[in-house]
Amino acid sequence: MGDNETVICRCEEITLKEIKETIERYQCSAREVKLRTRAGMGPCGGRTCRCMIDRLVEQLGGPSISNEISLSYRPPVRPVSFGVLGGDVK
């Protein structure tokens, strides 16, 4: 298996190659990488891969890591059922 086939986002199985190509082609931010590839959009909410995406974007000439969190966190930060959201106990 080549280095490029390494999975970065485990939830959505997005590879290093896909992320690299996206950054190189669009010279884009981590957020745009997420929207274009779905990396960081799985059940873990990007908890596992967000730091790698930030780093790849920075390494490949995109925006550097700043005080701002690049892939914003949105509630719910854990996948919850509509039942729980509606006030049911689990």
Binding site: R10, C11, G42, P43, C44, R47, T48, P79
Partner: peptide
């Protein structure tokens, strides 16, 4: 195939 990865609820694997 997937198994445990973080074992403390973070990764959902």
């Amino acid at each position: 195939p997937r198994g445990i990865y973080c074992n403390i609820g973070h990764c959902f694997e």
